[in-house]
Design a protein around this nucleic acid. Sequence first.
DNA 1: CGCTTATTTGAGAGAAGTCAAGTACGGTGG
DNA 2: CCACCGTACTTGACTTCTCTCAAATAAGCG
Lengths: 256, 256
Amino acid sequence: MDRSVHKTPFNHARSNLKLVTSSTCSGNTACEDCSVRHIAMCSALDTKQVQQLADISTDFKRDARQILCSEGDPADYLYNIREGCVRISKMLPDGRRQITGFLFPGDFFGLACKDVYTFTAEAISPVDMCRFPRKKIARLFSEMPELGERVFEMTSTELEAAHDQMLLLGRKTASEKLCSFLLAMAEKSALRTPRAADHVHLPMSRSDIADYLGLTVETVSRQFTKLAKAGLIKLEGAHDVHLLDRDALADMAEGD
Amino acid sequence: MDRSVHKTPFNHARSNLKLVTSSTCSGNTACEDCSVRHIAMCSALDTKQVQQLADISTDFKRDARQILCSEGDPADYLYNIREGCVRISKMLPDGRRQITGFLFPGDFFGLACKDVYTFTAEAISPVDMCRFPRKKIARLFSEMPELGERVFEMTSTELEAAHDQMLLLGRKTASEKLCSFLLAMAEKSALRTPRAADHVHLPMSRSDIADYLGLTVETVSRQFTKLAKAGLIKLEGAHDVHLLDRDALADMAEGD
DNA sequence: CGCTTATTTGAGAGAAGTCAAGTACGGTGG
DNA sequence: CCACCGTACTTGACTTCTCTCAAATAAGCG
């Protein structure tokens, strides 16, 4: 009731809450517990602060396939994804592409930047986001040390993930790469929807997966087929996978 | 004169100044200018703070080949390298290794961690470092927002480098990888010793380079030979390289 | 329902890996 | 200071995993 009355500001507040809360949970499996704790933390410390964040944020929606920001653009905004899936990529002059990450609700991008974006962000599915002018965010850091800490923690988590991905790209075989990917996606997916134990939805194309794993589409496809034939996964169309034997997948992901 | 009297505390202060200053310059070519500016910034804002940092730091020296910290160890310290070269690596269970970075004077590690280190750090050459208990550093963040900002900026730079390395590992050919590596090392080297225009010293072994670039020793060696025969570099022993044609190397690094 | 695009599958080529041997380098002890 | 030894580096021959090119099949969209 009350909600519909204050619709716009409330949505803003909610989106910002997400920035503060969900990121805290990223990488954490005991998320119900944790999100409660952090929502609590918000109300304890951030009541006014959440409002401050809400004040500088604006809604931002895009259809699938649209570019959200490009390599070289002035890095004016920090984006927080509320709904949808985004891919972050870098390109070589001849068009070879490396996807450095897939982002989901609760994730953000455009934070760890200098004056220009060093990557391109594109919507894989329709996205609902909110964005914050980076200048204003930066100003808030000095007023809210907690926010700075949060942001640092999020960046650390991202850095750690990047190092894991370097190990994958540099040293794993094609099948190890795909197994690692499926398990990572399953974990991310479980954070958002704790149900659906063994089911993973893959919104991205085979070509996106290839560019994320440093492979070609054909190799990715062959590895999917191989895992399916081995009985480790079951494909339900190209974008839905059931993980039938996680332990075996985990072993394969590390080369055992 | 005065220096020798207050030797120990002075060294501490100097090392911490390095943490605050040199990191600011990383990635910046106009370093003379910048370091002056930031030393100024230090004295303006950090006189007492630098002392606070000095108070919690301890010296830490190790010979070449020694392990500084291991994957899985409790992450108690933040390390700042004063002299020497360090490699950061991750391993797969079967021993395959990925080096995620080479660190030089002014660099640090152990900051973006949770409770345990997710990597191993080893001395390539004898190293002279100082280390800070992370708990105490964390406490200082709330007292010194500037420190937090600095640290966040450093982590951002590191994240950006990690993304570049992902592009290299996932999408570049062996010769592109080596060219990129040589240019990056030359740039890092120029930051430390602005002289010696085309000369780069490589303290690490071929095997380290291979594990950094996602290649084998043999391939790295063959690519060195190939570049030398093409007249783009000149090898002076295995650890010293002259870059004879930077433009050509830069073109090769991106696949032109 | 038809068209376009994405995915899968097949056959052949190539870049990098493996295995093996030779060479050079660096440190140590005579 | 030089000779020796062990390790690191280079080079060669061959293998293999992944890529490339090409075609068939399936899926998604208007």
